[in-house]
Design a protein around this nucleic acid. Structure first.
Length: 256
DNA sequence: ATGCCCGGAGCGTCCGGA
């Protein structure tokens, strides 16, 4: 089973790129972030024509997450992250597909630091950890997948010294990612590529892609139940070079 | 390197992103 995540940065503007990638990469399950479309503007017709079922949680202008599946039925578990009924941002959707819990997330960016947005990010992480700890206790096949907006280590960004006080790289944010790994979650891309440079995002500005000034923000974490099932993983970096592309590239794993 | 690029909303020019 091939499972992928792709921050599309606007699903309607990105539709030709998304459909081309789906056709070429043939993932079974896809988690999308930054739909940037209201609930009733999700292009479900085109997605179905491409052979996928979908569930999604839109928002008028920003955020928005979706889960696509080819062949396997999707059972939605929840489409908000529990723990704050005042939080109306569409950043979390969870489903069971092929007996596996798929947690699709678009974790807040948190910039500028310090400030309200950074505090919102820390709170969101706290709520997320409550859910991930529940899943660990249940000892079942589960996957945390999406745009974490966290650069896990100094090896995951082109010039770490420039990002010290950025919300993507602050020590407390990095620590929270390491805490997930300590609880038993496996960073699948890092497991498959322990030494290599793995970037998933390149800014539109400053010719970042040409200079390979990238960072690793999109992650796929496996519950202990699944850690021996990981077969392969990768980043479809060439998609970042296509016309009218996203600033993120698709990331995928293959599990037994 | 963050003034520089994008998408969305909507029609001038913001906001948010990372």
């Amino acid at each position: 089973m091939k499972i992928a995540t792709y921050n599309v940065n606007g699903i309607n503007g990105r539709l030709p790129v998304l459909l081309r990638w789906l056709k070429e990469a043939k993932p079974d399950i896809v988690c999308l972030q930054e739909l940037k479309c209201p609930q009733d503007k999700f292009p479900i017709g085109e997605i179905e024509k491409a052979g996928y079922m979908a569930i999604w949680k839109g928002e008028k202008r920003w955020n928005g997450v979706a889960i696509l599946s080819k062949g396997y039925e999707i059972t939605e578990v929840q489409n908000t992250l529990p723990g704050d009924s005042d939080d109306l941002q569409s950043r979390y959707i969870e489903a069971i597909i092929n007996k596996t819990v798929i947690c699709c997330l678009y974790l807040p960016n948190g910039n500028p630091y310090p400030g309200e947005k950074f505090e919102y990010k820390l709170n969101w992480i706290k709520r997320f950890k409550r859910r991930t700890n529940q899943l660990i206790k249940m000892d079942l096949p589960a996957i945390l997948i999406g745009d974490f907006n966290i650069i896990p280590t100094e090896d995951d960004v082109y010039k770490p010294e420039k990002w010290k006080d950025d919300a993507l790289f602050r020590t407390e944010v990095r620590k929270s990612y390491q805490d997930l790994l300590k609880k038993g979650w496996t960073d699948s891309l890092r497991k498959m590529y322990p030494e290599e440079e793995v970037y998933t995002f390149w800014d539109y500005m400053y010719e970042s892609f040409r200079r390979n000034a990238g960072m690793r923000l999109d992650h796929i974490l496996l519950s202990p139940y699944l850690q021996e099932s990981l077969v392969s993983a990768g980043v479809d970096k060439e998609v970042r070079s296509w016309e009218k592309t996203s600033d993120h590239a698709p990331v995928w794993i293959q599990i037994d």
